[in-house]
């Protein structure tokens, strides 16, 4: 991913032939300019302080107690949200996978995902306000689980329905009881779905913008990245974006490792 596509393009110009691959060149240029370059700018800005290359921004962030606290709190809220989504989502997906009408009923669980997240968040807030439940960490957690649980159920449901039923039947024939079948067959085979689900919930939760503010005035990492940029602190903001990017790339590597060759869960 790190190699410069521009170099590759310039090499190709030397021996030009209109093959079908050429149809992608404009887009390669587009990707380089609007996807890779902005990330390079973030990288450069992270190491740029007062016009010099240095680690000053990293040190500034390390000393910025408030931001570190937000990061730790985000990881904590992200972890709790993920655990709750998994604890609720897995039984849902498991039950649906074992029901004849499961693949139809699952649509009901995924439907809220299609409503804009701001609308969903404000709808949840409306319920809290009407029941005069004070907004705080608890309501933030509810909002997060409420917003992201479809993203947990979706990959779990895909993986669980794709597990060949004969594995479980074979295990049962060989004397395993239902609990053993679940622990030794179903659960291990559903690990790719669990990993996708965890990533699809954890990453958006920690980098969320606005949801936590609206549901309890809690700032999460996404909010504080935004705040740094609003206040013109591009250097520190870039370091924080790099941290977020590291999370994203790491989890994507993990995902690829576990989902080798398997059809990825798709929202579509």
């Amino acid at each position: 991913m790190k190699t410069n596509p521009l170099k590759k393009v310039s090499q190709k110009i030397k021996n030009f032939r209109l093959t079908r691959g050429v149809f992608a060149w404009p887009y390669v240029l587009f990707l380089t300019v609007f996807v890779v370059l902005p990330l390079v700018i973030i990288l450069v800005n992270a190491f740029l302080a007062d016009g010099k290359l240095s680690f000053a921004n990293f040190i500034a962030l390390a000393k910025d107690g408030a931001s570190i606290k937000v990061l730790i709190n985000s990881i904590f809220i992200g972890a709790v949200t993920t655990i709750l989504c998994l604890a609720i989502g897995y039984p849902v997906a498991y039950t649906l996978a074992n029901m004849k009408t499961g693949s139809i009923i699952v649509i009901l669980f995924l439907l809220p995902m299609w409503v804009n997240f701001l609308v969903r968040t404000l709808a949840a807030r409306a319920v809290f306000e009407a029941l005069s439940i004070p907004l705080g960490e608890g309501t933030v957690l509810f909002g997060m689980v409420y917003n992201y649980i479809p993203f947990m159920i979706l990959p779990l449901h895909t993986t669980l329905t794709n597990i060949d039923k004969s594995f479980g039947e074979a295990a049962a024939d060989l004397g395993a009881d239902r609990v053993t079948v679940f622990l030794k067959v179903t659960l291990p085979l559903s690990v790719p779905g669990i990993i996708s689900g965890i990533i699809m919930v954890f990453i958006p939760t920690i980098s969320t913008f606005a949801i936590s503010q609206l549901l309890g005035g809690v700032h999460l990492f996404g909010d504080s990245i935004h705040e740094k940029f609003i206040h013109g602190l591009y250097g520190v903001g870039s370091v924080m974006s790099l941290i977020m990017l590291a999370f994203v790339l790491l989890s994507n590597m993990l995902l690829k490792k576990f989902n080798k060759g398997e059809a990825k869960a798709s929202i579509w």
């Binding site: 958006p204 935004h226 974006s241």
Partner: peptide
Amino acid sequence: SEIVMAVS
């Protein structure tokens, strides 16, 4: 993550 893409 959308926020990183947005600020970049």
